[in-house]
């Protein structure tokens, strides 16, 4: 009966090299499980003390506070913009109606107009200007020169 050959865990140099390489890559000792987020305090204990003059000691706002503040700012900005637009529009309309002279609209011309154009207000004004054109020019005599 042949004796059993001695056990060689890593007889091949490549096996040994691979084993050494991968073992060296792994952290020793293997790191602990990560702390779940809820167990990590949002505000460190040294920052949770009452505020002092030092800026580093100011309390840190939680993410929820920051979000609420941003939303409030956005809402206030929108309200301000809407209010300004409303005020500006009302002021403009009031001043516009107060200063503008009464005018005859185009619709008035159309309502009073006829096919022949006899009653049209613009046509009525034409003879007047035409008559002014028929005024004889002033006579110039030699004495005037």
């Amino acid at each position: 009966m042949n004796p059993r050959p001695p056990h060689r865990p890593n007889p091949d140099p490549l096996d040994r090299l691979l084993s050494d390489f991968f073992k060296a890559q792994m952290k020793q000792p293997w790191p602990q499980a990560p702390l779940p987020p809820a167990t990590v305090p949002l505000i460190p204990s040294e920052l949770a003390t009452p505020p002092t003059i030092d800026a580093r000691s100011r309390p840190v706002r939680s993410p929820a506070d920051a979000t609420a503040r941003a939303r409030f700012t956005l809402a206030a900005s929108v309200a301000l913009a809407l209010g300004a637009a409303w005020l500006f529009t009302n002021h403009y309309e009031a001043s516009h109606t107060a200063t503008a002279p009464p005018q005859v609209g185009i619709s008035d011309y159309l309502q009073r107009g006829t096919a022949s154009g006899e009653n049209h207000p613009l046509l009525k004004e034409i003879p007047k200007t035409h008559n002014k054109a028929e005024v004889p020019p002033p006579k110039i005599t030699i004495d005037d020169l």
Binding site: P11, D12, P13, L14, D15, L17, L18
Partner: peptide, 20 residues
């Protein structure tokens, strides 16, 4: 494949693939 490339790039002796 690793042994072949390793022996090609370096003077590392190529291993015996059957041993694994």
């Amino acid at each position: 494949r690793l042994a072949e490339r390793l022996s090609y790039h370096t003077d590392f002796p190529a291993g015996q693939p059957a041993s694994e």
